[in-house]
Design a protein around this nucleic acid. Structure first.
Lengths: 219, 219
DNA sequence: GGGCGTCTGTAACCTTGGTTACACAGCCTG
DNA sequence: CAGGCTGTGTAACCAAGGTTACAGACGCCC
């Protein structure tokens, strides 16, 4: 690991900076910086988990892939966060059960399995992982609720909210985010537009009536 | 806590038996045995998490409840296991995001929040929780895959498998297990019967062709 | 045996969301 | 300007699953 990456790492993951010298040294000796281009598949279903990734820059999108090629986004991993799927795989000695894709050009610090396990011996690090575990669990529960019970218009309305008044996205991108297809999103957006909730233009959605959208989202 | 419960607890949760004397004493002083009847709601969505439950006997069914009253089972907690939702809530100081129901008459040992946190100071206990966390994550991933991508006939076929050759269940119970409704399960079972995969009778499903069912389940 | 509650069978109908198949608009580039 | 690419609009059709509404079957208990 370069000094440069080391600095970035400690800034992003304060918990590492606080580690005892020995642990830190071990990390520096064995961790490996890799850079992956946008769109690259960093890990995939059924694949054995090779190491634990810290995200230095860029971001990972973790998705569940359907047999027919569609994908349902589970969560994102941004710098300073970690990937619970990776933790779970390493801890449970199980293969991955989701796919990790670099959203943009992404730099990762890959920590080999054995060193990750050793790092878990440090109380501070263990607590850090624990904390992220429990946050993600809540996210996953939310996701289960959405896919099992919510209709697509509700989910779309929710997706549009909380990202400012003007969104620069294509219908396809929205569809991907929902695990659906472009035509349906277009259809629903048209409905929203007819109700005066949004205004549509190329690669752009303007929120006209946030309260109305919230009402739709709430079902 | 009674000596009796103490013995049961240590037998079911070996990790507790191995705790230092001080921790064990604290647990015995503050933990409280409660007994709940079958069907009782032990915790519910949006409710603050009062304590951490160890299951002594019986079992909990943890479900996500839909606005319309239907429920999707997430997982079960049997004696010797723990409830990650509870862990996640206590760790993240968030309210519950699912409902826990006693499947049968169930005895729980409830550990207050503060004592749970203290117990996490013990490396062995922390590892125990960690391990269960990662196992459950895999389950939840599996569930997401099912509800998002699998059709109901595939899920039903999978549900029927691996429980022996003759099942004593009502269609309603199967529907509940899938988060669906009775009529659809009846319709699908009829289809299975017509293909010679199963034989149906009152409160009973006989598996005639496991391999065929497995094929259906695989899609 | 008669009445009641539970379980099952089944048909008609509806909603949601996905699929297929285009048309067209805007824009960039050779 | 032509040609091509990307994004959007839209309609017809389809499949899955849920809803409604019954009817009959079986078992149990009075």
């Amino acid at each position: 690991m370069t000094d440069n990456a080391d600095n970035a790492l400690n800034a992003l993951y304060p918990v590492l900076a606080a580690l005892p010298a020995a642990a830190n040294q071990r990390l520096q000796q064995h961790a490996q910086v890799v850079s992956v281009p946008a769109g690259a598949v960093v890990f995939d279903e059924l694949q054995a988990c090779q190491g634990f990734p810290f995200v230095l820059s860029g971001s990972l999108r973790v998705v569940k892939a359907a047999p027919n090629g569609r994908e349902l986004p589970l969560y994102r991993v941004t710098p300073g966060e970690t990937c619970i799927i990776s933790s779970a795989c390493l801890l449970g000695h199980a293969p991955y059960n989701a796919r990790g894709i670099a959203e943009t050009e992404t730099r990762l610090l890959l920590l080999p399995n054995a060193d990750f396990q050793a790092l878990l011996g440090e109380a501070a690090f263990r607590d850090f992982i624990f904390q992220l575990f429990s946050e993600r669990i809540a996210d996953l529960m939310q996701l289960i609720e959405e896919v099992a019970f919510r209709k697509l218009d509700q989910r779309l309305a929710a997706l549009l909210l909380g990202k400012g008044q003007r969104l620069h996205v294509t219908h396809q991108q929205l569809a991907d985010e929902l695990g659906s297809v472009r035509e349906i999103v277009s259809r629903l957006l048209k409905g929203f537009a007819e109700q005066g909730l949004v205004a549509l233009s190329r690669e752009q959605v303007d929120i006209l009536d946030p309260a109305g959208l919230r009402r739709v989202a709430a079902g």
